[in-house]
Design a protein around this nucleic acid. Structure first.
Length: 490
RNA sequence: CGGGGCGUAGCGCAGCCCGGUUAGCGCAUCUGCUUUGGGAGCAGAGGGUCGCAGGUUCGAAUCCUGCCGCCCCGACCA
């Protein structure tokens, strides 16, 4: 069983790789650090994308598209931004190839670009240079734009979905009259991400602010949602940045206010990426394969016929048609796998690997008894139901499974969340138990760095819902008003 | 960027140290028969510029040199 999947307990990262490959989500390509997202994986991404897009539009945003290439000079305008990305940019220097006498293809040196083009690692600079042209008056504000795009960051080490050289994402870029408005937008979008993670991915997250050292390059404040993976590590699953007037100043984007004064625009940006696919895999899957929340499963119900002759298959198919019609009416997606080329056991294993939430099996025995076998992917429970009304059972189950895997993930997080009051205690937990640790910290980058170097754990964020509490930093003994969230991370 | 590993059939690998007939194994594929309530069995078949380029040799997957690519581990990052 579970052919070829490494056990979670044996080697977690190998397990992750096996699931991604064997469940047919993605594979490595011939291009360093870049993956091919396969149809099944892309179908899940499309479902995520569709829902996020609805949520963005409900909060007043519109989609647009900006260029893949950014002139190098744009980067020079915001100093901390270029610092943050300079080391991981792909640069286009030429625009033509030529064939040599012996048939080799080489870069035509005569086609050297006057100014190099950077393949976008993120689009703040190209977007703000455009916004400059769009904004003159307070009447032009706010601008609430999102773009679905691919970006390139030349990372040292890559892993399928979690960190690839090229990845797909959405990036929202908004412009506002006032600071409070931009901050409200930043918070609103973090809430959208958290809702999506919890309601759709069934993955509980912790909302909070990043520390100064983990802030986005060019932001005044970076908010994040952090989720716990099954190995106890944290995965940053979405970020929302308050950019202040940094980009407005860098690109000279001013507007005339109601009072007739010229002011710089306030900004936010926010994004989630195909990394969410990695989060989805690591949050719920098991040693048998993927476990998908019904709301994101490309196929919610699979029906496997069990037959000994073509005639039997015909009889079963007829019965199945009645069921699928009712599922269709309820808007539940399904697949009737009547392939004659594979046997039932093979199909069972295959759909478990692919994480299909509900499996139905129908054989002649069932036809005679008016029953059907239903198996849940999340719990692996199997039960016999009356065929009559099975669509209602399934409809309820979609909800139940969605909630059940969320509860399971939440319970796991709670069981692996600790409090530490001394540094010794902290080190012990990080080393021997892993998971999340709430502890007091003096708020300085120096202490943060020391902790990271000594334990490999970092401040994931300063949680919004962490209660005010007088305490002292576990390392320096300086006073602290709130516990922050520490963990090892991806 | 530092350390390690690997490039041989669609995939996973053995062979290489110690050069020598026709380069082998498992899975997958194809054909036939029997099967079908948890990844079917048997019989047969097809499929290879041994990463690339040089060199040594009567002879190179194997030895030497150079190059290219990918993966894994660390520091950086969503």
């Amino acid at each position: 069983m579970s052919k070829g999947i490494t056990k979670r307990a044996e080697n977690y990262s190998q397990w992750y790789n096996d699931i991604v490959i064997k469940a047919d989500l993605a594979e490595n390509s011939g291009v360093r650090g870049c993956m091919v997202i396969k149809p099944y994986g892309f179908a899940i991404w499309e479902k995520m994308k569709a829902q996020l897009d609805i949520m963005f539009k409900e909060t007043g945003h519109e989609n647009a598209y900006f260029p893949l290439f950014i002139p190098k000079s744009y980067f020079a305008k915001e100093a901390s931004h270029v610092d943050g990305f300079a080391k991981e940019c792909a640069v286009v220097t030429h625009y033509r190839l030529k064939t040599t006498e012996n048939g080799d293809i080489i870069v035509d040196e005569s086609s050297k670009l006057e100014e190099e083009l950077i393949v976008r690692p993120t689009s703040e600079t190209i977007i703000w240079s455009t916004y400059k042209k769009w904004i003159q008056s307070y009447r032009d504000l706010p601008i609430l734009i999102n773009q679905w795009a691919n970006v390139v960051r030349w990372e040292m080490r890559t892993r399928l979905f979690l960190r690839t050289t090229e990845f797909l994402w959405q990036e929202g870029h908004t412009a506002h009259e006032t600071s409070p408005e931009a901050i409200a937008e930043t918070n609103q979008m973090l809430d959208v991400y958290a809702d999506f993670a919890e309601q759709w991915m069934a993955m509980p997250v912790i909302k909070g602010s990043k520390t100064e050292s983990e802030r986005f390059a060019g932001a005044l404040d970076t908010l994040s949602i952090e989720a716990m993976m099954q190995d106890g590590k944290a995965l940053q699953s979405g970020t929302s940045h308050f950019l202040g007037q940094n980009f407005a100043k860098a690109f000279d984007v001013k507007f005339t206010s109601k009072e007739g004064k010229e002011e710089f625009v306030w900004a936010s940006s926010w994004g989630v990426s195909t990394r969410l696919m990695g989060a989805l895999v690591m949050a719920h899957s098991d040693d048998k394969g993927l476990v998908l929340p019904p709301k994101l499963a490309p196929i919610q119900v699979v029906i496997v016929p069990i037959y000994k002759s073509e005639e039997q298959l015909k009889t079963i198919s007829k019965k199945v048609d009645e069921i699928t019609q009712k599922l269709k009416d309820k808007g539940i997606s399904f697949k009737f796998d009547d392939r004659t080329t594979y046997r039932p056991g093979h199909k069972f294993a295959e759909y478990e690997l692919k994480g299909v939430p509900v499996r139905l099996a129908v054989g002649m025995r069932d036809i005679e008894n008016g029953t059907i076998e239903l198996a849940r992917r999340d719990t692996l429970e199997k039960n016999i139901y009356d065929i009559k009304g099975i669509e209602n059972v399934i409809e309820d189950l979609m909800d139940e499974i969605q909630q059940s895997i969320f509860r399971k993930a939440l319970k796991f997080r709670e069981e692996n969340t600790h409090k530490a009051d001394t540094y010794e205690e902290f080190k012990d937990i990080i080393k021997n138990k892993s998971g999340f640790v709430y502890a007091h910290w003096d708020g300085t980058p120096e202490t943060e760095q020391k902790i990271q170097q000594e334990t490999k754990a970092t401040v994931r964020n300063i949680p919004f819902d962490s209660p005010e509490e007088e305490g002292v930093c576990m390392v320096t003994g300086k006073s602290s008003k709130k516990r922050v969230l520490f963990a090892k991370s991806y």
